[in-house]
Structures are given as C-alpha cells and as structure tokens.
Design a protein around this nucleic acid. Structure first.
Lengths: 120, 120
DNA sequence: TGTTTAATTATCTAACTGGTTTAATATAGT
DNA sequence: ACTATATTAAACCAGTTAGATAATTAAACA
C-alpha cells in the first residue's frame, strides 16, 4: 500500500468518535476487546468491527493470549498524520507573523513584542 | 457543533486523496473551482461536491467574485488535527527514549549520542 | 466431557459516499 | 436580448459503513 492509500485508511479510521475514544484508551496501555468495549453502549461485534478498521489502518496491532486478543496502539501511523500536517505549518506561521506584525504596529514600535520569526 | 463532531467531519474530509490534493493546491493560494478541478480526471460536479465536504468541515472557506467561487484554505481545522495528535506525543517520545538508550548501551558509553530528552 | 468466557463471523438493514449525466442558475460579454 | 462561462442542483447508481442479532470458534476450567 502506498502513502496515499495508507493516509486514506488512517483518516477514515479516525473519522469516528468511538474509534478515537478507543485509541485514547489504548494510549494508556494495552487492553482486551472486552475492556475496550466496556465504556460504550454498543454491541461487542460492533466494537470488534471498529478494532478491525483500526488494525487495517495499522493504528493498532493485536496479539493472542489464550482466548484474549490484546490490542496495542501503533504510534507510527499517528506520526504519519503529524507528518502530513507539516506541509501546512508555514501557513499558520504566516498568519502568526501577520498577527505579530499588527500587534507591533499597534504598539508603534519596530518590534516591541519580543516575538521572533524562529518558528519552523 | 462540538469538538468531537468537528473532528469527525475534518477526518472524514481528509480521508480522500482528491480532497487532500485540493488542500495541497490551496496551500499555494486561493483558486476557483475550475482551476482546482483541472488536474483531475473527474467531472466538475464531483469536484463541486468535494469542495462542499471540505467547506462543511471548515477546512476551506468560499467567497463570491462574479460567477467565480474562489476557495481558500482555513488552517484552523488543520491545527485542530495537530492538536488532537498531541495527546499521543508522549508515546513516541517514550519510544524514542528507549531507542536512544539502546544505542547508548550498544556504544558502551553513559550517553554518547548527544541526544537529550528535550523533546516535549 | 460439558460449561463458561472471549471474540469473531454471518446476515441483515438504513444511511452515507463518490461518482455519473442532465438540467438549472447566475454573471459577463457582445 | 443572446450567448458563453462558472458553478451548482437533481436524480441516479454501486459500493461502503455502522449498527443490530444470532450463530460460531477457540481456549480455559471444573
């Protein structure tokens, strides 16, 4: 699977509040399907499906321990998301610069803010 | 709309390569629907729909200029995405620390890597 | 061996998505 | 007024999604 398809799967997996909540839970450590399902007013098969979506997006990995399938967060795909956003960082930096400039001008100083342009 | 619903819409909008490409194009500046549609082997109404999805997710804003509807990127929602990922940063930092430690141990030095723990 | 526990598979349904084509709207230009 | 351009709306279709319930697999336990 190439980069684009991987991002498709990751973003689609994240576009659901149940799945994001599951990830948030897994950020605190491994958990079984039943443990993950507990907080939700939803059938177990429904959770099972959500986990499959997360697994196929490689946001989690699953192992086997007797009849349990402990789930574990895979941070790599989350890093992919952060990495994808990097290409837009210069835009909000530009905005920030514009704001800083306006503030400086309102203060009537050349640069009274102490705000440099050292954000990359 | 609350935070969760907004993230639903944003992630769903991003889960499509055409829409991500449109955003990438808009990162270089405003553009009309026709200009945005040009690179794609897809009907204009299809692009129009993608733009509506992006607009409803507030990833873009649209204005009016005669018969044109110039589109502009809204960085705020992309910042929301970055912000959402922050809650997982400590996990890959932990991984990074573990790696750095292993490398240091392989080198047999107490800390020969020059790698500090100053990543937040 | 039979029972309980953990999880998945199968099947179904309603709603949504991503595309199409055709038709409509709105503005500009002649 | 007519025509061309830019864009959206309407209607349609195939495929996917998020949920449900019922049935099945697999391992542990008594």
């Amino acid at each position: 699977m190439d980069e684009a398809q991987r991002l498709d799967a990751v973003f689609a997996a994240l576009a659901n509040p149940t799945r994001r909540a599951i990830l948030a839970r897994l950020a605190q450590g491994e958990a079984t399907v039943n443990i993950l399902a507990a907080p939700f007013a939803m059938s177990l098969p429904a959770i099972s499906k959500h986990l499959r979506v997360l697994e196929q997006a490689e946001l989690i990995t699953r192992s086997k321990d007797a009849q349990f399938r402990p789930c574990k967060l895979n941070p790599d795909r989350l890093r992919d998301v952060v990495h994808w956003t990097e290409q837009y960082r210069h835009i909000w930096n530009a905005r920030f610069d514009a704001m800083a400039k306006e503030i400086a001008e309102m203060k009537g100083s050349s640069d009274g803010t102490g705000m440099g342009d050292d954000h990359t």
